[in-house]
């Protein structure tokens, strides 16, 4: 289990929050879709290390100073998500694609983790 504080963390004045995400599975892959509205490809980092994936992104966009806030529901557009992927992912073959504010991470299952068909004799 990773050690992480339960509250949003503040580092270098950036407050990260955990993005909403979804998980799908097929025979060959695990698919994680992470919602990162407002973050562009260049503002996003995905690292794979120590059997974990870490997604970090923060939008450089700042509200113009002359804008007055009348109503606000959104959170700061700085996201961090750390997920443990264990031994059962082929780390070298991980792929990620950002589209319409959603990062899709494809985690191919390692051969050993795929369902095996057992021949009946």
């Amino acid at each position: 289990m990773t050690c992480q504080p339960k509250e949003a963390t503040t580092e270098n004045t950036i407050t990260y929050s955990q993005p909403r995400y979804y998980v799908d599975q097929s025979m060959d892959d695990t698919l994680v879709q992470i919602e990162l509205p407002g973050v562009s490809k260049d503002e996003l980092n995905l690292t794979v290390e120590n059997k974990e994936i870490l997604v970090e992104g923060s939008a450089s966009y700042k509200l113009p100073e002359n804008w007055k806030v009348l109503h606000r529901e959104s959170k700061a557009r700085a996201y961090r998500l750390r997920l443990r992927i264990g031994d059962q992912v082929d780390q070298a073959a991980i792929k990620a694609q950002l589209s319409d504010g959603v990062l899709t991470v494809t985690l191919p299952k390692a051969e050993a983790a795929k369902p095996q068909k057992v021949k009946i004799t």
Partner: peptide, 30 residues
């Protein structure tokens, strides 16, 4: 397989019959 850490923030996800409520902000300038 996929042992995720607890979320940092309480879930703000109001999942309800496939309808969800996107966050909306309203600003004004001159």
């Amino acid at each position: 397989f996929f042992n995720a850490p607890p979320p940092f923030l309480p879930s703000f996800f109001d999942w309800n019959n496939d309808v969800y409520r996107p966050a909306i902000d309203l600003f004004e300038d001159e």
